[in-house]
Design a protein around this nucleic acid. Structure first.
Length: 814
DNA sequence: ATTTCATGACTTTTT
DNA sequence: GTCATGAAAT
């Protein structure tokens, strides 16, 4: 690592002392004189290399899917350091997620070694935002040690405000107000900036006022929400030019990842900081902008050149991930969008396998067939962790999960409720927050009656009244109240017990390590016991989570340190690595890649989602299309798209029409397949033939729907075509206009309906160790009673989940 | 104060 | 159909 030696050893990392001239000159001289190429440049293609080496002035790197965007960012940091143009502490690197920040950190570490230790300004927008606010808290009217509210706290606070204003929470839910305020904050609007008309939309003109009241409450609680971390930062910079100037001096180079996801507030924040050195490098892909619904402005990336005068744009179009057919399909699809900066991805790899499109009769068959294909892949030696199922909406996951549970196929759901969002974790954290800070009213409110200890709404209201009257935090108010005669003796006793417990824990906190303290708190509060008594399926997992929480505290110095970290980093590393099929939404798949990707549910209404079309019109459609593009480009070698002809929506069975996106795929790169599993596999898991019959009843107009016209037209056409039958047969239905024709799986089913029962009957084996009537426990479904046994498959009536068929290896006797 | 019942929503999700 | 939330019943 020659670059580490080039670095001056003299000044402390944080000292600005810029004397890059001499070093830079030496570095470039070394490069020019044909010195051995720096290791971080090895293997970069010409465009990547240009993006790494163009250090001065604004730069936009348009990096298509799989073109080595992170590689460029990390190499660029290495290059800045190696050339001695800046100290590690003078580089600002912002990402969106903690995960991205972590990965970036690791990869930079691999390149530059310990210099990464001197980079405190690598993190998410929000973590850097807090860092700045903590340094200048007094300038924005906050006391040191201000707390950061999570969404739950936010909603609770808003509910109180709505109640105080006598606004009907039914008609104007706090949740809606929260997202409205969030939206304003995303757009960089403080209460006075909200256009009057917009502020009036909520609760008959009270929206703007509520926003202002909310901000006032935050200040009173010495708290900020996530939006404030940026918004207050912007205000700080605008009102204090000297502070801004300090940061201008500090940040010589700014790097931004996933620029297409920035919202207006983030853009403003960044622009203020970038006005200093002007060396701002944004990396992103307008075609992967899929977060418009939470405030991301594709416009930011489209406007980059005019926002940052003199900006240079470099396109990375050489794809290293996917095979030819996959890449061509994705490119052809995304080309239907207008308003793109435009990139043409190419690869030098092989064409590989075509993208397959398969129709299934219904979502159940879709899951079954996909499950079967995965079993085949597994038998062929594919790793399960290289197979992903990417769905549009999370409700689609359940059917796959159920299927995998039945098959005994290991799977892992990515996303879903995150670790720190789980109720038990939030409760535990609320206890710790109360110990840490007696003034944390929101935390106190959360746990005052968890576990149930008889302190209900009425008592809480009394505490509130005392608190408001005396200007005390809730905990202190509660203490005062227990000293008075106002409470019933029983309630008074328990409340006093709780307050005393907190006092005791606070005392112990001085002496004990914080992990031990946490265990004591959870134990003595009765919280652990509450879950131990719980007989539901999740209880065991929750207790496990609590243990995990305590473990996760270990690396931290003390309790406050841990709590600060937690409020920003709401994710935990859910132990990856095991060999399991990955199930997730398209959104959470961004940035990942797999050998094989299944893309189920490509039907009008689901994908593109009806609501995106209704609410956002063309912009919504284009974002959905970008989502489709993201989905296809996740695949290295195999992309398999599915659609079902029937799907249950809100509990009702609906006929569906294949997605218009299927029309937009290029014929040459797509292979239309018939659903595997034909007769004998179709049908429902209920095993009832009444359902099989109804299938035929409903099937007629839809099963053979060709999709060479846009979705809704197709729907009209197929309805208007009574002769168009399901009986198209295994020849693959018929096609209009010579276009592609998709035959839903049901189409080739000519004979009598064979239900899954045949399969079950054939799976006889050794006598089961279980008996009907026995109580069992299942990791996913909880407790239940065996109602039937068939070989190694049990039918169990679960207390919570209803009747399910499961493999006996997945249950244990209770 | 707690349990049970009914009502309504039901895309995506980070910080 | 299913889940969460809020109001009536206990």
């Amino acid at each position: 690592m020659p670059q580490s030696r080039r670095h001056p050893a003299g000044p402390a990392p944080d000292s600005p002392a810029p004397r890059p001239g001499g070093i830079a000159a030496r570095a470039s001289a070394a490069l020019a004189s044909g010195a051995p190429e720096a290791s971080y440049l090895a293997g970069l293609n010409p465009e990547q290399r240009e993006a790494v080496e163009t250090l001065e002035g604004p730069l936009l790197v348009l990096a298509g899917a799989g073109t080595g965007k992170t590689r460029v960012l990390t190499a660029r940091v290495a290059h800045i350091l190696a050339s001695g143009r800046a100290f590690p502490s003078q580089i600002l690197v912002v990402t969106f997620t903690n995960k991205a920040a972590r990965e970036m950190k690791e990869r930079i570490h691999a390149m530059v070694g310990d210099q990464i230790e001197g980079m405190p300004w690598l993190g998410t927008f929000h973590s850097i935002g807090v860092r700045i606010l903590r340094r200048h808290h007094e300038l924005v009217g906050l006391k040191s040690g201000f707390t950061i509210l999570d969404t739950d706290d936010q909603i609770r606070l808003l509910k109180q405000l709505l109640a105080a204003e006598n606004i009907d929470e039914k008609r104007w839910p706090a949740r809606l107000l929260a997202s409205t305020i969030d939206g304003w904050k995303n757009r960089g609007l403080s209460p006075k900036d909200v256009p009057a008309g917009e502020g009036a939309v909520f609760a008959n003109g009270k929206g703007g006022m509520l926003y202002a009241a909310y901000q006032a409450r935050l200040k009173a609680l010495n708290a900020v929400d996530f939006g404030d971390l940026l918004l207050e930062g912007i205000r700080l910079f605008r009102e204090n030019p000297d502070v801004l100037a300090e940061y201008h001096k500090r940040f010589k180079y700014l790097l931004v990842d996933e620029y297409q996801d920035t919202n207006v507030a983030q853009y403003l924040w960044l622009r203020l900081l970038a006005q200093g050195s002007k060396n701002v490098c944004c990396v992103g892909d307008d075609d992967q902008s899929i977060y418009g619904w939470r405030g991301a402005e594709v416009d930011n990336i489209l406007r980059f050149e005019s926002d940052f005068p003199g900006a240079k744009v470099i396109r990375l179009e050489r794809n290293y991930r996917s095979t030819g057919h996959i890449l061509s399909s994705a490119s052809h699809l995304i080309a239907h969008n207008e308003g793109r900066l435009g990139k043409t991805l190419f690869s030098e790899g092989e064409d590989g396998e075509q993208v397959s499109v398969t129709g299934a009769w219904d979502s159940g068959e879709e899951a079954r067939a996909v499950g079967e294909e995965i079993e085949q892949l597994q038998r062929a030696g594919h790793k399960l962790s290289e197979i992903a199922i990417l769905v549009r909406a999370s409700f689609q996951m359940r059917e796959f999960e159920d299927r995998f549970v039945t098959l005994g196929m290991p799977y892992r759901v990515i996303g879903g409720p995150r670790f720190y969002e789980r109720a038990e974790i939030r409760d535990a954290l609320a206890y710790l927050r109360c110990v840490n800070s007696p003034a944390d009213d929101l935390a106190f409110e959360r746990i005052v009656n968890v576990p149930k200890r008889g302190i209900g709404d009425a008592t809480v209201k009394q505490i509130h009244d005392v608190a408001r009257a005396a200007g005390l935090p809730l905990q202190e108010a509660a203490r005062v109240l227990t000293q008075s005669e106002e409470l019933k003796p029983k309630v008074r006793g328990t409340l006093r017990g709780l307050i005393e417990a907190f006092d005791r824990w606070r005392e112990q906190a001085r002496a004990l390590p914080h992990t031990e303290l946490a265990e004591i708190v959870l134990d003595e509060s009765g919280y652990t016991e509450m879950w131990q008594k719980d007989r539901s399926a999740e209880a065991a997992g929750r207790l496990e989570n609590l243990k995990e929480l305590v473990r996760s505290m270990e690396p931290f110095e003390n309790l406050p340190g841990f709590l600060e970290h937690i409020s920003l980093v709401m994710d935990a590393d859910n132990g990856a690595g095991e060999d399991a099929v990955q199930v997730m939404t398209l959104h959470s798949a961004k940035g990942l890649e797999f050998d094989t990707v299944f893309l189920p549910g490509w039907e009008e209404g689901l994908f593109p989602h009806q609501r995106a079309l209704d609410e956002q019109g063309k912009a919504g459609l284009e974002e959905e299309r970008r989502l489709a593009y993201v989905g296809i480009t996740r695949a290295r070698a195999s992309a398999r798209i599915w659609f079902a002809s029937n799907r249950r929506i809100h509990g009702m069975w609906n006929s569906t029409v294949p997605s218009r996106f299927l029309d937009e795929l290029p014929d040459a790169h797509v292979r239309v397949e018939e659903s595997r599993g034909g007769a004998g596999w179709g049908g429902s898991s209920y095993g009832g033939n009444s359902y099989g019959q109804s299938r035929f009843d409903r099937a007629e107009p839809f099963a053979a729907s060709s999709y060479s016209t846009p979705g809704w037209q197709r729907a009209q056409a197929s309805r208007a075509r009574p002769g168009g039958g399901f009986s198209g047969g295994s020849s693959g239905g018929f096609s209009e206009r010579g276009g592609k024709s998709y035959d839903a799986g049901g189409g080739r089913r000519g004979g009598p309906t064979v239900i899954e029962g045949t399969l079950i009957a054939s799976s006889t084996g050794a006598p089961s160790a279980f008996k009907p009537g026995e109580r069992v426990f299942h990791i996913k479904f909880g407790y239940g009673e065996i109602t039937g046994i068939d070989g190694n498959k049990l039918t169990v009536l679960f207390d919570k989940a209803g009747e399910k068929r499961v493999l006996e290896t997945f249950v244990e006797k209770t």
